[in-house]
Amino acid sequence: MTITGEIDLYTAPGLQSEFARLLQESPTTYVVLDLSKVEFCDSTGMNVLLAALKRLRERGGTMELAAPRPAVRKILQVTGLDSVFTVHDAVPDESLSAEPQG
């Protein structure tokens, strides 16, 4: 699943809805979020990502973050969320061959 733009107070509800739709319509338990096109993410956005991770873990799944830009990576590090999420420098090859998630 690729996210673009900013994840903030104004855009987070749309992302949250998209996660809810994905989890409701699909048996998906493994999600890789390509963050290479995310320019900014505030605490509201991080909370949406955490909530999605929690819902996936309740199903026995997980969510990983891939290719965050330096500003987003810094937020992950400062908040300690880089130890909660698996963070890849690039999108993992195995997720490229999987069925598209978004």
Rank of each mutant, 00 (worst) to 15 (best):
D34V: 08
V72M: 09
L33Y: 08
L35H: 04
L56R: 02
A66S: 07
L65T: 08
F40Q: 05
M46F: 13
D42Y: 09
F85N: 13
R57G: 06
L35V: 09
E64G: 03
P68Y: 01
D42E: 09
V84F: 07
L81M: 15
H88Y: 15
L53R: 06
D34L: 08
G60D: 09
A71K: 14
E58H: 07
P92D: 10
Q77D: 03
M46D: 03
T62S: 10
G60E: 05
N47G: 13
G45P: 04
L81W: 05
V38N: 01
C41H: 04
L33W: 08
V48Q: 03
R69P: 00
V78N: 05
Y30I: 03
V84L: 10
A52S: 09
R57K: 13
V91P: 02
L76E: 08
G80A: 12
L49S: 06
H88F: 14
P68G: 07
M46L: 15
G80V: 14
R69L: 11
V91L: 14
P70R: 15
T86F: 11
R55W: 03
R59P: 09
I75M: 14
F40D: 04
A90R: 10
V48M: 00
L53S: 00
V32T: 13
E39A: 14
G80D: 01
V78Y: 06
L56E: 01
E58W: 00
D42S: 03
R55D: 12
I75D: 02
D34C: 12
L35S: 04
S36K: 06
L56N: 00
G60W: 15
L49I: 08
G45F: 11
C41L: 14
P68Q: 00
K37S: 05
Q77P: 02
S43D: 04
A90E: 12
L35A: 07
S43P: 08
R59K: 14
D34G: 08
A66C: 09
F40V: 13
L35D: 04
R73M: 13
P70Y: 13
S83G: 05
T44S: 13
L33R: 09
V32A: 07
N47E: 11
L65Q: 02
R59V: 02
E58G: 14
S83N: 14
A66V: 01
K54V: 15
P92F: 11
E58D: 12
T86L: 11
V38T: 07
S36R: 09
A66R: 02
